[in-house]
Write a protein that binds this DNA or RNA. Structure first.
Lengths: 352, 352
DNA sequence: CTCCTGCGTGGATACGTTTTCATGCATCTC
DNA sequence: GAGATGCATGAAAACGTATCCACGCAGGAG
């Protein structure tokens, strides 16, 4: 059973293909013609092939979505937000999971380019230069949750993403006085971390550590700032995005620094690792260690003790990013920052 | 900056487009020509456009993936499995989230058809007839985790999916003696719930309830069978896939049947709802109520008490489904059943 | 030497759509 | 009534690729 093509409809309705196309895309046509074409199309169960359209317009509809790990509930929420918006717009979304590995990220970007996907929502893990091919190809990219790190390490590539967009931007006469903003949808990390740290210092804690993951540059900066610069470097430690690495980092930190009394985990997988490691070392929450975790995942309440968290609106982040990438106005990319909220439960107590 | 086309490569290499196509798709070509074409292609940074190829072959590469809810960790794992396999094959996957709503499912199927996606992995929620359009269009469908319910309710539509495939199958001379098998990748529900129920009855429990979700027909059957038919109907209750509904169902069950001493939750969201509801009603685990939950999600260990679970290999389910849909042999669709494992932790105790 | 076979190659075509352009007809203006 | 204006319409081109087919050339068999 072959699908009906626009040609079939045109013949059956006794009109030209152009007319059918116009009727279906909302162009001008006489009432009688429109009616007839629509009737025939419905009767033949005609659905325009996205393939033909895409080839003609030299672009795939819909959008790409790159997340680090769907096993992480937060990214699940973010993805659901993106999907909700895409569904409302009737657009497909092609998904990739990077595993927080820049190499896989680059590979997936290449695959999306091959598919002529020209809109992309990404939680980046690679540095700014990884995004060069995408931007050069004219892809509309919106970053969610994070922004690529500026990497000027190896050569004379443009270091920051802003420079990069200036370089590749479409407008030939770009005013350098008003540099392009990188379109992104982020949670307010500065406020979130500051609130958490103030809450902990308010409880009397002085030795507070940050357990971070890939792309946590902004959060670490906020953490240091909130601590007023009185931070040991050993008090901020990084994992690479996998569960194992998170556990190793958490366990290592707690063992090497028995003097610390509070910990903020920069993600729910890191928080999970932290309570596991603490339990393994016989550290009680909140008696021996106070914990604030990023992300208000459902199980935070079920944990023992219930976890005090910094809630990020994961779903909203995704939804807004999708909105942005769809209504993308290349002229003035817009960034949005969404608020976070400290939800106090039972995992923090006064310094013992 | 325009992308190089196959024509550019052909001209630059001084050959015809057909030759370029052959070289790149592994056809026959002389060594010298192949080398030259490859060199030119690399130098021009040529990437074949999936658009052109897809239109020509009248199909989109890659596969669709339909899951109920990415916020549910189990489906996150399943999706990661699919993505892993797809990535290995270099194929894109377009994702949809149905919210366990047959209407949305139908809409998403329509969208995939429009995109000419001809391979689909789905956790179905609608009945068998919902899959008719997809199969008629020649889509290769592999069901994961569940199989559509046979719905012969309204009219003379084929009731079971097997009949349906017989009807639409490609082979005109199909032997009715050997009916088609519906390709699917499932966990061994029968063994899983039998093991759980035996474990609970072994602890002395007699009043055991099942808290189910959409598509849990097979699990409920297994539950009833394991109980030897001595089941009240009120002891199996269904939610609709949302968190709220899961909580309502759990709370309602626990309140209306104070006599029950054990509960098996058919999914991690249902389990989450169950411990929440139990806590709300001041029922202690495992003192007042024993709980076995489907899905060994990471937080099961962090819960208080740590949850005894039926572990399903979510990631493997997804990976195998993707393998199946890629190597699809329409002649003999194959189904695979993966084992489950009962992981005993602290949420079950002897009948008080 | 001739015929046949086989292989490497390039021209041409088709895939299904959108869009441009020219045409024809009807209406409006002076 | 003649020219100008507008609108509905269809033919045709283009998008980038894979594949069919025909062609030419080399080498082997007779």
């Amino acid at each position: 059973m072959k699908r009906a093509t626009i040609k079939d409809v045109a013949e059956a309705a006794g009109v030209g293909v152009a007319t059918v196309s116009r009727v279906l895309s909302g162009g001008s046509a006489s009432a009688s013609t429109r009616e007839r074409v629509l009737a025939v199309a419905a009767q033949l169960d005609y659905r325009p092939s996205a393939l033909g359209r895409n080839l003609r317009q030299r672009r795939t509809g819909g959008m790409g979505l790159l997340v680090p790990d769907l096993t992480d509930t937060f990214y699940g929420q973010l993805a659901e937000g993106v999907l909700a918006c895409a569904r409302a717009a009737g657009e497909p979304v092609v998904l990739g999971s990077t595993g927080d590995d820049p190499e896989q990220e680059a590979e997936l970007i290449g695959m999306l380019l091959e598919q002529s996907v020209d809109r992309l929502i990404a939680v980046p893990c690679g540095g700014a230069h990884a995004w060069r091919p995408a931007l050069r190809a004219g892809m509309t990219v919106v970053f969610a949750d994070r922004v690529p790190a500026a990497d000027g390490e190896d050569d004379d590539l443009p270091a920051s993403l802003t420079e990069l967009m200036l370089l590749d931007g479409a407008g030939p006469a770009r005013s350098p006085a008003r540099p392009l903003e990188v379109p992104s949808v982020l949670a307010d990390d500065r406020a979130g971390v500051r609130t958490a740290v103030r809450y902990l210092t308010g409880l009397g804690h002085r030795r507070i550590a940050y357990l971070g993951g890939p792309g946590h540059g902004r959060r670490v900066d906020a953490f240091r700032a909130a601590l007023g610069g009185r931070t040991d470097d050993e008090l901020v430690v990084h994992a690479d995005g996998s569960r194992d690495s998170a556990y190793a980092a958490a366990s290592g930190l707690l063992q090497s620094r028995p003097d610390l009394t509070a910990l903020v985990a920069g993600g729910n997988m890191l928080g999970e690792a932290a309570v596991l490691a603490a339990r393994e070392l016989d550290l009680r929450l909140p008696g021996d260690l106070s914990l604030v975790m990023y992300d208000d995942v459902p199980w935070a309440e079920l944990c023992h003790p219930p976890l005090t968290v910094i809630a990020q609106p994961g779903r909203d982040l995704g939804y807004r990013a999708a909105e942005l990438v769809l209504r993308s106005d290349v002229r003035r990319p817009k960034s949005v920052v969404l608020p976070t909220e400290l939800i106090v439960r039972g995992s923090c107590g006064p310094r013992r």
